[in-house]
Design a protein around this nucleic acid. Structure first.
Lengths: 352, 352
DNA sequence: TTGTACGCGTTATCAG
DNA sequence: CTGATAACGCGTACAA
């Protein structure tokens, strides 16, 4: 890695400054000079020193992408879309936080250290104990502080799937999913099918996404006077298959007359379905099952899963464009992305 | 971002060099001095300038991870494992190459520019037209050249799921999957069940993984004198659901008497199953179906999918350790990871 | 349009 | 164990 700007400059008989300008492309340079420089670059197989230019320019071409876990298709799809939209030139630094605010903080600091050009924070936030919908837990405060600092440094911050309230006003752009609307539509669908005792296997109680989806579910129930039992018919657990399995069993224990179970997401619904099968219950004959997210495999389940589709890909791509400043900020700095109810075979009329 | 090493030094009444040593931790510093420095760091909320230190130290703490597409669980799982094993401090730069050698080259160059500490290259390679098992296409040459340069720069290179032949000798460590062995075992399983006419929906013809899996399949067939028809009973396509769907239909057209179809991977098998159902064929009653990779959803399909499990997580974690130099290199610089045949419900005795 | 010269914030070498 | 000081390689006012 011996060849530097100076070497190229010498070979092209120009100054280092000129080479820099040719490579940056943001400054007028005579055509023949440029050609000479480019040839020298090629002949020497010169590769820019990223850290050096980042130091001098005070910004790198790294873009941080915080996700719970890339192995989870929900995040994998978003991360993939971000990365694709970034195009060559920008490099996505994908960080698994596992949903832990501490690790979020750690990575945000690391990204701050790298002078990242932008940061996309995906996934739900952990809510503080006291606030309701606000961002006032101590961790939320710390994360907000980091975001403020990032923004002050010129790093663009985009929240994707997290309420705008979790970043100080004016420091970030936000893309939210309509979790409440989707959940409500889903439960309305079940109620329309005649279901009255509907179980809900929710995510961890302290996540915003969990609460929003639950809010939508409860709103639908309340609209039909069915919310009296809501507390008893709700169990919490992580957003995984095991939680759906255990949750379904627990719900059935609490209320054998259940005719429908909603999973906090598709993966949970998968576990719910498996538990039901083990119990000898048919889906949707005995019990209807529904999920959320519409991950790729959901349509291929048997029976295919009724769920709520979220524009994950679009969200990621748009987040990337916002992060690069290629797209105008949405009005008010935040946009809500639409959901789409996907009624498939796992839900049907209530058993008589 | 005004606060620098010098500011901290001033506050702690020491030199910048001392602060640097305290923060790097790789140099003896008096206990009280260290405490004073640490306090100053804390009080000023100092954050190291990554690019600056990368420039001075000639290496960053970025680790490149090249994958086909993180949205694909196969790669998502590996990437996630790499990232988790990296721990805080190292940042994973995840690059989607879409399997394209050009983009692989582009990202490798970008990583070279960043002075990445290490690079993990996952996924199969594209084979040159002339060679057989070698790495002599022009693209392969170019990629090899980049790898050589990376290695020369001190960047550790780890190939994960790609033959060692695709990196110049001594420049990279390799973790390979036993695709051939797994494929052979899978087809042996089908043959043992009585199947004689077995279709195969393979991946793109020019990928090493495709060839290796096909080799294993053919070897099993040959061992039982069933390879006469192999060419006719094989179709190629991308590693996706649509390919499995179309492939199954085409195979059925070519040979209506087919009693089993193997997909190049689980996603392809999903498509195969869907096509079969549409044709009114039952699985495994009429036709047995098998996949490869054992992705998370495979066990939950109905019928659950017989497949070959690969230690994706372990591979990613180990690749990360090799990349960090935390684990001794395997003998000969390359290790082959074991597969595990997972016999489930999608395969059964040949219909009579 | 091109060259000069300095600064970016760290690390590492070399004294002390 | 600690302090100067010289790189590290590039961007960019400023000058020509």
């Amino acid at each position: 890695m011996a060849v530097t700007l100076a070497d190229v400059a010498a070979r092209a008989h120009v100054s280092a400054a000129t080479v820099s300008r040719v490579l940056s492309g943001n400054y007028p340079v005579a055509e023949d000079t440029r050609a000479r420089v480019l040839r020298a670059v090629d002949e020497l197989d010169y590769v820019v020193n990223g850290p050096a230019s980042a130091l001098a320019a005070a910004t790198s071409d790294l873009v941080g992408v915080l996700v719970n876990d890339v192995a989870d298709p929900f995040f994998g799809i978003i991360a993939s879309a971000v990365q694709s939209e970034l195009g060559a030139g920008k490099l996505p630094v994908v960080c698994n936080t596992g949903g832990s605010p501490e690790r979020e903080l750690t990575y945000l600091t690391l990204l701050l250290r790298q002078r990242a050009a932008a940061v996309v924070i995906t996934g739900s936030a952990v809510e503080g104990g006291t606030g309701e919908g606000g961002a006032d837990g101590e961790h939320a405060e710390a994360v907000a502080a980091r975001i403020r600092r990032l923004a002050a440094n010129g790093t663009r911050v985009v929240l994707c799937g997290r309420p705008a309230a979790f970043a100080p006003p004016g420091t970030a752009l936000t893309l939210e999913f309509d979790n409440t609307g989707g959940a409500r539509a889903l439960t309305e669908h079940l109620i329309a099918l005649g279901h009255r005792r509907i179980g809900y296997v929710a995510g961890p109680a302290d996540r915003t996404t969990t609460r929003h989806r639950l809010d939508g579910h409860r709103a639908a129930l309340a609209a039909h006077g069915l919310d009296g039992d809501a507390g008893r018919l709700t169990v919490h657990g992580p957003y995984d298959r095991g939680s759906g399995h255990a949750g379904a069993l627990e719900l059935l224990r609490r209320e054998p007359e259940l005719t429908a179970i909603v999973g906090a997401n598709d993966t949970v619904a998968l576990g719910v379905g498996a538990a039901l099968r083990e119990r000898g219950l048919s889906v949707p004959g005995d019990v209807s099952v529904a999920g959320f997210d519409d991950l790729p495999f959901s349509a291929d389940m048997l029976p295919s899963l009724t769920t709520v589709a979220l524009p994950l890909q679009e969200a990621g791509a748009r987040a990337a464009r916002l992060a690069l400043g290629l797209e105008a900020a949405p009005a008010g700095g935040a946009a809500v992305l639409p959901y789409e109810l996907r009624i498939r075979q796992s839900t049907g009329p209530r058993r008589s």
